[in-house]
Simulated scan of single mutants.
Amino acid sequence: MAILDIRNLTIEINTSQGRVKAVERVNLTLTEGEIQGLVGESGSGKSLVAKAILGIKKDGWVVRADRMRLGDIDLLTLTPSERRRLMANDIAMIFQEPSSHLDPTQEIAEQIEEAIPSNTFEGGFWQRFQWRKKRAITLLHKVGIKDPISVLRSYPHELSEGVCQKIMIAMAIAKKPRLLIADEPTTAMESTTQIQILKLLHKLNKVNNTSILFISHDIESVSNLSDTLTVMYCGQTVESGTRDQVINHPRHPYTNALLQAVPDFESNLKHKSHLYALPGSIPPLQHLPIGCRLGPRCPNAQKTCVQKPHSTRLKGHMFNCHFPLSIEDEASS
């Protein structure tokens, strides 16, 4: 059963140079208990998709979609009070910049205890005394904070960016949500803590059957955790499929470029060798290329690429490209 179903999501933003399409016709389907990775370099629109799901938008944004549902709930028709109730119980998000999403006027203890729903209490009525504080300490232990008492008495500006990120993760998993949106959850963390957080998210998925939308620019770390992968470029979905399909049989040149950019430490790397990278950068939203948006950077681009590519689907593997990679192998298998 699909817990999240998005069809043709488009986000337009009013700028000084007119209205631009920051996200165009994005499709996402997340089944119950699934971990899906949403991958793309900075500026590809991943965080905008997450904010649209939560209903976080600015005055100059126009969000449209043919369908955006959480289970049997239509996210496009919710009133503000209904959306707050839904966010309090069913959806949680780990934001990319934690220090800007924590209240600077409140101690960490107040913010975490406020995020713990009453329906998560387990035990007798005599155990309700300070149970939220005890629960907050347990949550901070889970995310790898060694001195939770000191952290609970601190304000966000007194803590490092990495610790604030862990606090955001603790607040998100406190709800035991049906859907967890993790936007770069391991940013500003050391490698050992990153592994610990990824294991925690995996355990949350298996024990509580929590569906996770994992957003990152690092396709390697996402692929280790995800069941399916969706690749975005310049506000559009370019490829999606199972982990094996996308990682081992990429069809879109951009997906292939992301995979080639991951250093292979098993091979004999030359000293000071350069990582693979596509030429150029993501075009500004005010000056998007016609047709395929990757065209000016694509090594396989031809005249046909000035036309918008159609979606192709083979055995659940979807890609948008006029000249997909190794398409004959998959069609014949």
Rank of each mutant, 00 (worst) to 15 (best):
E12V: 15
I219Y: 02
F125V: 15
Q130D: 09
V207G: 02
A170Y: 08
Q286A: 11
V306D: 12
N209A: 06
L213V: 08
A172S: 09
I116Q: 10
N248W: 07
T230W: 06
H317N: 12
M1Y: 01
S150L: 07
L4F: 00
V49F: 03
N89I: 14
E184K: 09
N27V: 04
G43M: 05
T31R: 12
T31N: 09
V231H: 09
R293F: 12
G295S: 09
A261T: 07
H202A: 15
I137K: 08
Y254D: 01
N89A: 03
N224H: 06
F319G: 05
I215P: 01
L258K: 04
H322M: 03
S154I: 07
Q96T: 04
S191G: 10
Y233P: 00
D183V: 05
S42M: 06
V238P: 01
V63S: 00
I6N: 03
R128Q: 04
H274C: 10
D183N: 02
W131Q: 01
R135K: 13
T15K: 14
D74N: 00
P185Y: 12
G316L: 07
T105K: 04
R25M: 14
A52I: 01
F323P: 00
S281G: 09
E97H: 11
T210N: 11
S191I: 10
S150G: 05
T186Q: 07
S99M: 10
I112F: 00
S267E: 11
D74L: 00
N300C: 10
E158H: 15
L259Q: 14
